[in-house]
Structure formats: C-alpha cells, structure tokens
C-alpha cells in the first residue's frame, strides 16, 4: 500500500509537468483527486489495512494528497503567470497613444473672458446683459454723450433702418441694468460684443468684445475703484503686476482714467500697455437713469459709483502675443489648436 502510494505520487507529479492548459489540469484533478480518482480509489483500500499499519498508511495518504494538491496548485499558478506575461509580451509602450476624438479647444477670447468673469465673480460681481441692437438713448444720450458727438455719426457707428444702432460699447448695459434693478448695491459685469464702423485690418475689427463692470452704492469712492482694479489686474496678470492710472476723459465718467499695466510682451522688455478705461459714474448718467425710472433710487446726489471697461480682443492679443487681430475671427484650426 505504501509502495503503491509512493509510486502514485511520483506518477502524478511527473504527469503534472506535462500539462499546459486549464482543461488538462482539470482532467488531472478528476483523474487523481475526483470521486472516482486514483487517490480516492487507493484511500478506499484503507479499511483493508491492518490496524497496526493504519497510522503509517494514513500519514502517507495525507502526504501524497497534499503533494498532488500542492503540485496541482503550483502548476496552475505557473501556467496563469505564463499566460499573463504572454498577454503583454511584445507591447512597445513608446508607440503613440490613441487620441480618441482628438483634443478640442476653447477660443482664446472665451478663455480670457472666463478668466475675467471668474475673477470678478469672486469679488462679488454678477453678470448682466443687454441687446446689441440698441437705442441711441441707451448707447449715447443716457451716457452723457453730446448730441453732436462724432461717435454718433453714421461714418463711425452702424445704424439700422429704424434708427436703432449697433452698440458701440458694452457701457449701454450699465444703463439697461440701472433702469431695471430694484435695490442697491448694483455690482454687475457685462461681457459682450460691440460694434464700430472700422475697416477690418491687422488691429481693427468691426465687431469686437468687451467686458464692462459697474458698482453703484451710497458711498463708492475712487478708493473702491482703485482697490478693485488693482486687485483684478493682479489676479489676472500675476501678484507683482504694476498698474497705473492716467487721467483721461470719457463722457460717462468723471473723474476718468485709463489704466496701463506693465507687461512683458514675448521676448521684449516690459512696458506700459493701455488696457482699460474707468472712472466714477458721471452724475449726468444717474440723472438720465432717474428720469427714465421716475424714482430716486439713483438720485445723483444720493449715490456714487464706478465703472470700468476693457477690450478683450486686445487683452487676448497681448497675453498670447498675437500679432494680427484677424486671427481671432478667421478660425484657422492651426491657430485655434494653440490655445
């Protein structure tokens, strides 16, 4: 019996080495360890073994079963390991990946606009909007623009046959907002398109993009204007950015300033670049709005405010070093893919 067990063990273990797949291993298991298997058959002979040998034979039986079971498991693992290795053999990971549907891009103007919007929203501004086909009153009169101001001329501004015009700046949204809001404070930003009757060339578009901001409350001062704009430009251009305010003139703000930011164009020495216009809302604007509203929420003696606006196309050109503004509307994919 002991001899039979030993030779079964030897036979089984050497048979294992020749097995190369899952099915053969399963057949082997049934052949030796199954209900009708060889080892099971031998262990049935246990009852015929004399009592004094039972202990030795029993131990041997366990030894052979363990040996075959372990051998089977080891063989199984080895085969699986070989298979797993096979699965990645020959793969050259230095080959390029699949691009899927490809990489899309947001237009540089969208990126700049969103940067400005996100920054100003953190500062407590909400968005406002208004029509692009606008009345002369909202675009000029209410913004304290003299009746014979050159900007109103048909050579400078696009008109519709019914006398409306294409807004020449997003400042008209200031008026639209002040006309309709119910309470102070007003803290809005208005990104949008504006139009000027300019020939399209490397630095001009007839349709361009601006962002406008307005803050009106009881005691808004130049200090609020300065704090807000300095913070804004440092958030957009980096913490160390130098910002300067030059006195200027706009009909709808007084005092008015132009804002320069010191920037390094690609490969050039840093220089002051004019980037925005701003100022304290002219009392005449509040007076016009009050007249239109018919109430005193924006009485010129009761409220003050500041406004600023900037051209996004120009900002995009400066930030990205784009030499010709027409790139922004031609949509050459080789251009768009760079952003």
């Amino acid at each position: 019996m002991l001899t039979e067990l030993d030779s079964l063990k030897t036979e089984a273990l050497s048979a294992l080495d020749t097995l190369t797949d899952e099915a053969a291993l399963e057949a082997f298991r049934i052949d030796y360890l199954g209900k009708k298997g060889k080892l099971t058959g031998l262990s049935a002979g246990m009852r015929d073994v004399p009592v004094e040998q039972k202990k030795d034979v029993g131990a041997k039986l366990n030894e052979v079963r363990d040996a075959i079971t372990n051998g089977l498991a080891t063989r199984k693992e080895a085969l699986q390991a070989a298979k797993d290795a096979e699965a990645v053999a020959g793969i050259d990971l230095t080959l390029p990946g699949r691009p899927g549907a490809g990489t899309g891009t947001l237009h540089p103007l969208t990126q700049i606009r969103d940067l400005a919007v996100r920054t100003l929203r953190r500062m407590g501004f909400t968005l406002a909007d208004g029509p692009e086909v606008e009345t002369e009153w909202h675009c000029f009169d209410a913004l304290n623009t003299p009746a014979d101001h050159p900007a109103r001329n048909e050579s400078d501004t696009f008109y519709m046959p019914d006398g409306k015009l294409l807004r020449t700046h997003t400042s008209s949204v200031q008026i639209r907002t002040l006309e309709t809001v119910k309470a102070l404070p007003v803290r809005i930003i208005a990104p949008g398109a504006a139009y000027r009757r300019d020939e399209i060339d490397a630095t001009h578009l007839s349709v361009f993009n601006q962002i406008e901001a307005l803050f009106v409350d009881k005691d808004v001062s130049l200090a609020d204007l300065k704090g807000t704009l300095e913070f804004f430009f440092r958030e957009v251009f980096g913490p160390g950015t130098a910002v300067r305010f030059r006195p200027h003139f706009f009909p709808f703000t007084e005092p008015s300033f132009e804002i320069d930011v010191k920037l390094e164009a690609k490969g050039k020495e840093a220089r002051w670049i004019e980037i925005a216009g701003c100022g304290m809302v002219d009392p005449a604007v509040f007076a016009a709005v009050s007249k239109s509203r018919g109430d005193d929420l924006f009485h010129p003696d009761q409220v003050t405010g500041f406004a600023f606006g900037m051209g996004l196309d120009r900002l995009a050109m400066i930030l990205h070093g784009i030499s010709d503004i027409r790139h922004l509307i031609e949509n050459d994919v080789r251009f768009l893919q760079q952003f």
Binding site: L127, A183, R187, I188, F215, S221, L222, K226, G227
Partner: peptide, 17 residues
Amino acid sequence: GLDRVPAKFTAAFAQGD
C-alpha cells in the same frame, strides 16, 4: 493722482439674475 488714493477692497452681496 491716484497714487495718494488708498486702495479699498469692497465687496457686497449682489443679487444675480
């Protein structure tokens, strides 16, 4: 000039639409 104007940081809750 604006150099002598202090920079004030004001934020106010403003209702959006």
